[in-house]
Design a protein around this nucleic acid. Structure first.
Lengths: 150, 150
DNA sequence: GTGCGTGCAAAATCTTTGCATACGC
DNA sequence: GCGTATGCAAAGATTTTGCACGCAC
């Protein structure tokens, strides 16, 4: 597997988007963005974890702002909101290289792996078209047991 | 589409399961089961809704018991826990006729449609096998916009 | 009779919001 | 300077839990 490819670098579309429609790029928002870009696609953080992480780095952000920022970034399409089996919502950086990736979750230990599948994509698209829905995105959650936990 | 097929009827495996391991079949649990069987697979209720429904039918159940019962039935595999975009968790009856069905959700109005796809099932199974995971189930969530909301 | 299940209320989580202040633009 | 974003604390929403009592078996 190749090294993770950084996407949506600060200075890129993310920053541009945060300057549209009267929005402002504040230090807090920048810190949240930087965190997600640093850890890359494929890591799933809760609001609480994002906050904890930033506080640990001496960044001054309130939890309320984290919630507001996460919601904003999701609505702008820069983050994905996941609902796996980890209790509560989690967020990850959107990636244009991996638009619709899916999750394998071990129901015992919570270990999470990602994969892609054009078959899944097609199946979702076909199902949507069949009843006149306009597809936005599709995510497959596979509940399973990992080798260690078997 | 054929008329909905009742599954897991009271008196069937559900009742049997509730008598295993020292578990008891109480009126409250029976009421929750009956409700889910009456509405059939494909309706998604929140804990609050289950409670409200039962209270309306003059059944005496507390919300705490609903939560405990839902969690029990999920752990026994008789209910599925869903996390769509409706805010909060929802539950539906498991069906052996439709083991892995998927959801199309309109992100505007919340309208939800179900569908099945052997392609999706296969894709999940293959992805799991590839890294040594033992598949339990897979569910595809498709976010889309329904005809009315377009 | 034993011990699991329930109801109740309190607590624990998780998330949102009102308001005064701070600051990006 | 204008108006958005933030921090704080309080409120809301959702889910869990401790404890005494009730009831399924």
């Amino acid at each position: 597997m190749a090294a993770p490819i950084p996407v949506n670098r600060i200075g890129g579309p993310l920053e541009v988007g945060l300057h549209q429609d009267g929005r402002r790029l504040t230090p807090q928002r920048r810190k949240v963005l930087e965190l997600f870009e640093r850890i890359g696609t494929g890591t799933h953080l809760s609001a609480e974890e994002v906050h904890h992480q930033l506080v640990q780095e001496k960044s001054k952000v309130s939890l309320a702002t984290i919630y507001r920022t996460l919601r904003l970034l999701v609505s702008m399409g820069f983050l994905h909101e996941l609902e796996l089996n980890e209790g509560g919502h989690r967020f990850e950086l959107s990636s244009h290289d991996h638009p619709d990736h899916h999750h394998l979750v071990c129901v015992r230990c919570g270990r999470t792996e990602e994969f892609e599948s054009s078959q899944v994509l097609d199946a979702g698209r076909i199902a949507a078209e069949k009843i006149g829905f306009q597809l936005i995105e599709s995510t497959l959650n596979v509940r399973a047991i990992c080798p260690k936990c078997q």
